[in-house]
Amino acid sequence: MTVPAAARVVDAVGAGLGPAVLAGTAIRRPVPIPGVGEGIAWLVRDDDADHPMQCYVGVWPDGAVRLLSDDQPAFFDLVAATGADIVDPSTALGYVRAFLEVTRGPAVIVREVRDVADLRWRPGSQSEEANRARFEAGPPIEPPVVEPSAGGFHVELTLVVDQRVQRNVFDVGRDGSIRTGYRVLADDLPLPIAR
């Protein structure tokens, strides 16, 4: 596996993480994307900054390095350039999870949950606490779904996205293409805020 050159990573991540990359204090770690080649996505993280930062970069076959965080089109461009083979439900599920993580906004919390007990609460305003009570009294969180479908796989996950909980659906093609949709289950909940 070839580690992307620091200079190219610095160009991609900008002034926030760049100095730590140059100083060698930033973590640079490959992130597996099931069904796609190894070493094409990398975590870049600096825990020493006033506000710790991290992002994901992609390495294209021609050596170009680009941000993947907050940029889903860049992710699909990378997958198209590299090639993907999503062969089974397990790979599809891993692929979707990796897609969610590497393309999330850097300060957006995205976390899969399977049960209300998985939620970590913070003290909330009166209105937020009321929303929490309603949510906890509602139907249980549905488990993940992954099943074969025409042309690929159908995946459903329940996610925490910042202060809301949502059910996301993904139709994953064998070539790595994804059609997505989501339904908000509850919003304005007293969930932690990433800064």
């Binding site: 710790p52 930062m53 991290q54 850097p106 932690p192 805020i193 800064r195």
Partner: peptide, 21 residues
């Protein structure tokens, strides 16, 4: 301190983060 604000990288509080630093 109470988990309202957490770091975007490790989901820890800022009192923990600055202590680690």
């Amino acid at each position: 301190h109470d988990g309202t604000f957490v770091t975007s990288t490790g989901n820890i509080t800022y009192s923990e983060h600055y202590g680690n630093a």
